[in-house]
Write a protein that binds this DNA or RNA. Structure first.
Lengths: 352, 352
DNA sequence: ATGCTTTCGTGAAAGCATTCAAGGCACTGT
DNA sequence: ACAGTGCCTTGAATGCTTTCACGAAAGCAT
């Protein structure tokens, strides 16, 4: 591969001139400029990103750290990030942490040695990122947290309205007449799990309903977790008539458990998921879910990072994206609802 | 961030010694060695990968090019690749091509400027990679093709036994008594689609069955494609009693079409998918599918790349992984099978 | 034609780690 | 005690690009 010196020689100009043509740093007059361009074309020359990065103390790399690309929620985030990155000439380095903080730190340290322009991170469980990311900031990298935030995070971030989404979904169930609502939450040390639970509780409290202790089950964000916890809920007396699953994988697991218990969804138990994954509509019944856009999450994160690179000391931005309840087939009024409603009508009539 | 010079000064040794300690290039005696290590520990020093890459003409980066991480088959491949890469101290740069050859070339060119140690690529449609990847080889990068190969590929590769998998699945259907078999294939310019079709045809031919022209439908590897083509198959006379979908997404789409046509799967139509994705078992009925391990695919690819780096001129390796028919619920004998079988029994009895 | 401003172009330095040739030291054998 | 050997250690050179200070040329006005 050719280098700049050879281009300079071929075009009969100095190194500096080639650089200026390449980067539009200084205006170079037509004749020279063309000679340089022609030499580059001829040789297929490409500047070494390594040398460039070394000199500028920064590369066109964006580091992205996620828990696990196998979780179907994350590919969307990655894709959104990669698209915006690519469109702006950045490359994405992808790292999976498996929610293992040590692995996260290992990745962070290793990535730093490449002087990436930005760091897009979905913090691992128990993540105490703040310290580690400081070195990135010092090195001039823009750091953006996505989906969840570590404790005491005061930097840029993109999350969704977890509380609102859960509140809305829960209120919807209550509006249909459900009085026995249970929730299967994700790990409660994650901010997104916490917020979804908050929204759920808020709706339940607002409706003046009870929340028996067993109606709240915490688990991991996967099908196995949802399955196990739904089994437990299924044995409760009274059995909940509706379950809010704090993500779609949990919801899918719950659906399996419901089916195995020979109960019908939605007739016996209504179920709402969270995320609105593509795969939520291939089940029978299709899963009603609180939709959020992973693509948007990733794309926004990279955009925030690029914005910060452009303007280092602009105020911190913590973007919160909206959710949307996607009503499909897994929710119905509780079996007794009709009865209750007519009784109320009778009482009302009696009073009149 | 500290640099090597500062470490050398702090430890009271020369630059070279620090380098030797860092890279184990030459044995350094304990006292010095410890002083260097201590200095590194104190400062949290990390060698600049940029400077290192510049000097060595190679980085610890592995470039990975895939069609689209949103396709649920690919995250497994990426994860397998990343795990092996990470375990060996390599980072993975991920690029999506959307099966767009221009985008692929753009990515390749850009990546080359980082002098990656390896290039793991799932070729895009119409991919004429051979030329482009030559520059990587020249630059000392190991190139490995995964899942599909471009025309005239003569380098390392990891694929699966597409022909065998399809043959086995089709034979299984035939064994159950199906005589009207249709296939919905992926894009036929992809080697994996071609091979799956070959396997299908081979089984059909071997059983002496006819293959009416309309029974072969080509489409893209997604649900929409499977849905549309299954609709067409549904209107054929005679209607096929079994369909081989050449990947699970196509299978899922076909399942939707079958359901919409008020037909039952598997009673009216048997369906086999290809890939054995996780999500194939959340449908009703669960999709019988030819399983392949995407993780293995990715992991093997990186391993091949690392092996080649270690031994540049070892013979080319083209690994072919096995598939496994995962029988679930979407397949049954055709409705008429019992009748046919008993008629044959009668005829046999008459002859006797 | 002279002098001044602007606009361009140049060459060298800087950024950091690796590697190679050369020199230093200690120890062995005689 | 000396030459020889082997193992460490050193300093300089190298890889490629960007940037900065400086100088040259060109354009303009008088």
């Amino acid at each position: 591969m050719a280098n700049m010196k050879q281009i300079a020689k071929l075009a009969g100009v100095s190194l500096g001139t080639v650089s200026h043509v390449l980067n539009n740093t200084v205006k170079v007059r037509e004749p020279l400029r063309n000679r340089v361009l022609e030499a580059i074309r001829q040789t297929g020359y490409q500047p070494s990103q390594l040398a460039r990065g070394l000199r500028k103390d920064k590369t066109d790399i964006l580091a992205m750290i996620i828990p696990d690309i196998l979780n179907p929620f994350f590919p969307g985030v990655v894709r959104g990030a990669e698209d915006i990155a690519f469109a702006n000439g950045y490359r994405l380095v992808l790292c999976n942490t498996d929610n293992d903080h040590d692995k996260e730190v290992a990745h962070l340290r290793a990535l730093l040695a490449y002087l990436p322009s930005g760091l897009i991170v979905i913090p691992s469980d128990f993540s105490e990122l703040v310290g580690e990311t400081d070195s990135f900031r010092k090195a001039g990298s823009a750091v953006v947290c996505v989906d969840r935030t570590p404790r005491n995070w005061d930097g840029d971030s993109v999350t969704i309205n977890n509380d609102g989404g859960a509140f809305h979904a829960t209120s919807y169930l209550i509006g249909l007449g459900h009085r026995h609502l249970a929730a299967i939450t994700g790990p409660l040390h994650l901010t997104n799990s916490q917020d979804r639970l908050k929204g759920f509780k808020r709706a339940v409290r607002k409706a003046g309903l009870q929340l028996p202790p067993g109606y709240l089950q915490e688990t991991t964000f996967d099908r196995a977790g949802g399955y196990a916890k739904a089994k437990i809920l299924m044995r409760m007396v009274p059995r909940p008539t509706a379950i809010l699953a704090c993500n779609d994988l949990i919801g899918l697991g719950a659906l399996m458990a419901i089916r195995e218990a020979k109960l019908r969804c939605p007739e016996d138990i209504s179920l709402i998921g969270f995320d609105g994954l593509d795969l939520a509509d291939i089940t029978t019944p299709q899963l009603t879910s609180v939709y959020q856009s992973p693509y948007q999450l990733g794309a926004t994160a990279v955009q925030l990072a690029l914005d910060r690179l452009a303007k280092v000391d602009s105020p911190v931005r913590q973007v919160v994206l909206n959710t949307e309840l996607r009503i499909r087939e897994s929710v119905a009024p509780p079996l007794g609802a009709e009865r209750i409603r007519s009784r109320k009508a009778r009482e009302a009539a009696a009073l009149a």
